[in-house]
Simulated assay, not measured.
Amino acid sequence: MAVWDKKILWAVMLVLTDALGQRVNYPDPVCGVKGSTVTLPCSFTPLKSVVVNGREVLIEIIRVVWCKNHELCVFTTPSVYDSESNNNDPRYRYLGDKKGDCTLQISDLQEEDNANFRFRMEANEPRASFTNRSGVRVTVVDGAQMEIRSSRHDGEFKRGESVTLNCSSPMCTIHQLEVTWFRDGFALSESGPTVHLRYLTAKDSGNYSCGLKKNERTLSVPYSLHVEEGGGGSLHLIVRLMVGGLLVLFAVIVVVCVIKRTAKKVEDSVIYSSGAIYSTGLRQTTP
């Protein structure tokens, strides 16, 4: 009975502190593939001060805790991160502080992480400690085969073109992935979910696949990429340049012809006028 009374007391304190303006902002539900890394962006707003026995006490956050599947993160609740502990699981990395950032990163996701995570801040005055019970839901997908997506489904490219290959899970949207890329069975240096191939040449041709570094079962179906040897893209550019040059040359020839024709007309007009004046002068001087 005493335990339930204590829980009820804590629940009442949580409601009161929330009403006073304390906040914890969680992200939307997060989905991750087993073995991958996810980040839970989080921010919190503690109280600035409380009044104790008629005296204002400035609030300082002295401890931060992340737990899972517990509404309060207090008492004997197992935590995934505790700023006062030296035995935190290294898979859970706290990226925040004690000022307003409570971001948590979970690496090498396991089935046990399929849970509701909650954050708690504890202050120098117990009445200013707070847990937001809504939490953030993390869903873990086990053994989902990755897939490669590209803007070109046929995989046929010309020399000099570019392509971006994306390694993703069809079961949920994942923003952070540590993957291994392969071409014809040989590992590439890229480790992110995206590979950019620019100025393609024949050596880029091959079967590309990707998968999570720590989960071989996620290896994707190969994506076949073929680059034409002929360099059709360069030839097309050369043809366009030649056609453009011919058009410019034709325009210049037309302009020159027009100028010559105009000059010829002016010259003929001058000669004709000079001849007419000369003939008129001869008639006037004849007795």
Rank of each mutant, 00 (worst) to 15 (best):
L95I: 03
L109Q: 02
L188S: 00
C102R: 01
P78E: 10
V266H: 07
A11G: 08
P41C: 04
F157Y: 11
K48D: 02
K213Q: 14
D97P: 06
Y26V: 02
R240Y: 03
Y208H: 04
V254M: 03
L177V: 03
V74T: 12
S85R: 11
A11V: 02
S43Q: 10
N25M: 12
T262Y: 07
L241A: 13
G192N: 11
H196Y: 08
L40Y: 02
Q284M: 10
K203F: 10
V140H: 02
P78T: 10
I259T: 14
M242A: 13
F75S: 13
Q176V: 08
L165R: 06
Q284V: 10
I106D: 12
V221D: 10
G192M: 03
D5I: 00
L9A: 12
M146G: 09
S36A: 12
R149E: 02
K68D: 01
V80H: 11
V64L: 08
E111D: 13
P27L: 12
M13P: 00
V195W: 05
G100D: 02
K99A: 07
G233Y: 13
I59W: 01
L40I: 06
D82L: 09
I277D: 07
E84S: 14
R149D: 00
D142Q: 05
E84I: 02
V239L: 11
R198S: 14
A123T: 12
G244T: 09
A123S: 15
L9W: 09
H226V: 15
T45Q: 09
L40S: 04
F186P: 00
